[in-house]
Amino acid sequence: MPRAPKRRRRVLKQDLHTQTEAQCKDSSSSSTCSSSFPCSSSSSTSSSSNPPLPSIPEEELGGDSTQSIALSPQEACSSSAVMTCTPRSQSNEGASSQNDEGPSTSQIVGDPEAFPRHEIDAKVSDLVEFFLHKYQTNTPTSKEEILMCVIPNCQDHFQVIFDEASECMKLVFGIDVREVDPTVHSYALAISLGLTYDGMLSDVQGMPKTGLLILILSVIYMNGNCAPEEEIWNVMIGMGLSFGEWHCIYGEPGKLLTEDWVQEGYLECHQVPNSDPPRFQFLWGPRAHAEIRKMNLLKFLAEINESDPRAFPIWYEEALRDEQERDRARIAATDAFAMASSSSSASSNIAYHK
């Protein structure tokens, strides 16, 4: 089975480091796109009609950057469409071969001889499937229920299995497993980053697609808030997704990018003026701007990169500006509401005295 979370983490790591180096050399590139294409979005034009699907010559994709981040091209799914995750303890390139040669860091937690790596992977996959069911039915769960129903007799390995399954839910499906009561270790599942979309109401029923959406929005963010289609498709290919090919979780990637997420307001897809052959660029849509705080997204990316948001100063400064702008907007809205309430109260008093 594919190692999707590891692949996704490597995609974001590669983009973070590549973009950091490029933007440190030319900081102006972080705030503007090509001079022929305005970065300021116009949501009314993008949402009113679906843009054509991008058509990129195959030889223009899969360059050095793609080769450096792409792992196996396989994207097979199990019968339950649950992907096996690669834990952070297997971060090096030879992790898969080491699984057969000796125990990983997570494997030696508890009794090192009780669970070989492949059995832990199987338990992680079972728990991911269990978490998906809980999310789809909007029901909480607990450590007791997990140990009883999903991974019985795994008390010593619970934390390893739980952490890896939670990471898989976050990276593949964009779903957070949150502890709501530490005294009884109860958990609820919610969409990451405060998004209100999970993609379950589509022609691929029942599978959250928020993880891929967050990945695409992150790529746009790391490319100065405006990413060329070639960059987006290179990342998709690095994830094992191909234009025009059906995927059991995400459906047809081209439709997701240029129709579904545009109509939902999370993306804008515009043709670059005077481009021949036509070229497209992707920006955040109004719904993404409204729902995602860039500081939260940066923390999400830093966590994947096992780093700190301050380690990426260009994006950290932009995220701080975003926080300040949101604070000013909130204060202005509060003041406007207070003034309106005061005016209404004064008018009522005048009418009463009359």
Rank of each mutant, 00 (worst) to 15 (best):
W284T: 00
N225A: 11
I220R: 00
E268W: 01
F280S: 03
G238W: 01
L257M: 15
H247T: 08
I216S: 01
L193Q: 11
Q281T: 14
G254D: 11
C269Y: 03
Y266Q: 07
G211V: 07
S218P: 06
W261C: 03
P208R: 00
W261Y: 15
S218C: 10
N225Y: 10
G224K: 00
P253M: 15
Y266S: 05
L215F: 04
C248G: 15
E230W: 07
I216G: 00
S202E: 08
Y266K: 07
H270L: 12
P278F: 05
P286G: 10
A190S: 14
Q263I: 12
Y266E: 02
G254K: 06
L189S: 02
E231H: 12
E245Q: 13
G251Y: 02
H247N: 15
V204T: 14
G254M: 07
N274C: 09
T210C: 11
M239S: 10
Y250G: 07
L257H: 05
E259F: 10
L256T: 03
W284A: 04
H247S: 11
G194Y: 12
E245S: 14
L215C: 11
K209T: 04
G211L: 09
Y197W: 14
P278Y: 05
M222S: 07
I216F: 07
D276E: 13
N234R: 04
Q205N: 13
I191D: 03
G244R: 10
I191G: 01
L215M: 13
Y221K: 04
L215N: 03
N225Q: 14
Y221I: 05
A190W: 10
G240H: 08
A227G: 11
I191P: 02
R279A: 10
W261R: 05
G224W: 02
W261Q: 02
P208N: 06
W246Q: 13
N234V: 03
K209E: 05
V262I: 13
L201S: 15
G224D: 05
Q281L: 08
I216Q: 00
G194I: 09
E231N: 13
L257N: 05
S202A: 12
V272G: 00
P278V: 07
F243L: 13
L257I: 12
N223W: 03
A227C: 14
